[in-house]
Simulated scan of single mutants.
Amino acid sequence: MKTSIIAIALLATAVTACSTEPASNAETTEAAMSAELVADLGGELQGPVYTKNEGETLALTGYDAVSYFNGDAPVEGSKEFRVRYQGFDYQFATAENAAIFQTDPAKYAPQYGGYCSWAIGANDALAPGDPTVYHIVDGKLYLNFSKDVAKRWTKDVPGFIEKGDQNYPTHDASEHYTS
């Protein structure tokens, strides 16, 4: 019986290894990227997520989303502790922060996909959010484009959040800020 199981396993391995269709570069790259993930939480994308370049998947410009809530200042994450959520990769400074994010990713992911909270609230527009210019309001992370823009946003935080909550869902997940 053991010999039969081993023979079947070896045969399956041989058939896989002798496949006539080589993996494409995209498949190989995706497999390598997935191998580096701490976790893939899946989930449906609710709207656009800001990345530096269109087509990239690194959210929050690599900053540790949990660090906004448990430290003096946000810190950059590491590729070593990467979690995929709604198709985008979040990096963390520690395994502990990656584990905390996994318990409730919606709590830690930035509002409006990391786009500028003032721009989406005031102008229904997508503008990059700077991960070093942020506010935590009612336990949620909001980014702004710059310190000057953040000053405008703080003049009516509840109003801009109300408008942002209405405006952001009208944007398609495939949209990306372009200058």
Rank of each mutant, 00 (worst) to 15 (best):
G139T: 06
G164E: 08
F92D: 09
L60F: 12
T13C: 13
T51D: 14
S24W: 00
N25A: 04
A12G: 04
Y68S: 10
F101P: 04
T57L: 14
I136A: 08
L45V: 15
Y112V: 00
T94Y: 01
Y50V: 04
A35D: 11
M1W: 14
A12V: 05
A39M: 13
I100H: 06
Q86G: 03
Q111M: 07
E44T: 08
E56M: 14
N70G: 15
E56I: 08
G87A: 03
S146M: 10
V157P: 08
L11P: 02
D89Q: 11
E96M: 02
D172Q: 09
A93Y: 01
A106H: 01
M33L: 15
Y115F: 11
K52R: 15
M33C: 13
K2I: 14
V149N: 12
W118D: 00
A150N: 14
T16D: 00
C116T: 02
F81L: 06
I100N: 06
A73K: 15
G121N: 06
D104A: 05
G47C: 11
A39G: 13
S78H: 03
Y108H: 01
E162Y: 03
T16L: 04
L60K: 10
D148Q: 14
R82Y: 12
K147F: 03
E44H: 01
Q46R: 11
K2Q: 15
L37N: 06
M33H: 15
A119R: 01
A14D: 03
A125L: 07
Y85Q: 10
H171E: 05
V75L: 11
S78M: 03
P128G: 04
Q166Y: 10
A73P: 11
F92T: 05
Y115A: 05
A98E: 00
E27R: 05
W153G: 07
P110S: 01
T57Q: 15
Y134R: 00
Q86T: 08
E30R: 12
E175F: 02
K2C: 13
K107L: 00
L143H: 09
I6P: 09
E96D: 06
A150S: 13
L58E: 12
A73L: 13
Q166E: 15
K163I: 03
F145A: 10
E21Q: 08
G42C: 05
D156M: 05
Y142M: 02
N97W: 00
L143M: 10
T103A: 02
A23P: 00
G164S: 09
I6K: 14
L126E: 07
K2W: 12
A17E: 06
M1Y: 12
F81C: 06
E96A: 07
T61C: 12
E44Q: 08
G77E: 11
E44N: 07
